[in-house]
Design a binder for these strands. Sequence first.
DNA 1: ATGGTAGTCCGACTA
Length: 264
Amino acid sequence: MRIATWNVNSIRARHDRIGAWLDRSDIDVLAIQELKCKDAQFPEELFTERGYEVSYHGLNQWNGVAIASRVGLADTEIGFTDIPVFGSEDPVVEARALSVTCNDVRVYSLYVPNGRELDHPHYAYKLDWYKALTADIAAQLSAEPEKKLVLCGDFNVAPLDEDVWDMAEFDGATHVSEAERAAFDELLGAGLSEVTRQFTPGPGVFTFWDYQKLRFPKKQGMRIDFQLASQALATTATAGEIDREERKGKGASDHAPVIVDYDV
DNA sequence: ATGGTAGTCCGACTA
């Protein structure tokens, strides 16, 4: 089973590029983040015309997650247990988490909150979000240690110093703080292994390059998109790649697709 | 020259 995760930064703006990418990439399951559309605007035909089933969840022009599969798609769950709300006036559960079962693999599409600034309420929300996700996954894997499960997504954390182009540029910034890295590690402690790095070792290997300041041509990126697999699934991973070519040219997302082949 | 973008719904917000 060949699983990809991709923050597309608007599924409508990326419609034709996603279709062309699917046509050449032989993907069985695609976890998508940042749809930037509500459900009524979601282009189902982009997937169904290519033989994929698709589940999606979008509430407005922000966030939004989806999973497309050509190897079965069942038991869609929006969110996860005790997913935090955000907002002081009118707290809401944002469209950042979706999971489905594809064949016998439970697949998540996750768009972790950005955090914005270390002293911003969004940062505390980000850490809470990690904590609740960790509790949910730990409970599942504790109840069923051999469960095949993978968290795909934009985790908005650079776990290692080599996962940003220059740590000096990130002094006092989000994505590299001790608390965020600890939250990411605690999620792994629920019984998961990050499976993409072994096939795409750094330094200088990234999954995201900001549109601003010519970050892509200057090779100034961040590694923040991952696949975190339970042991029963992680041990079957045979290959992985970051499709950096897809970041090139006019109309690219600021994130590249991250692909792993599993022998299941 | 020390900046440089892009998406959404319409001047501002998000990243």
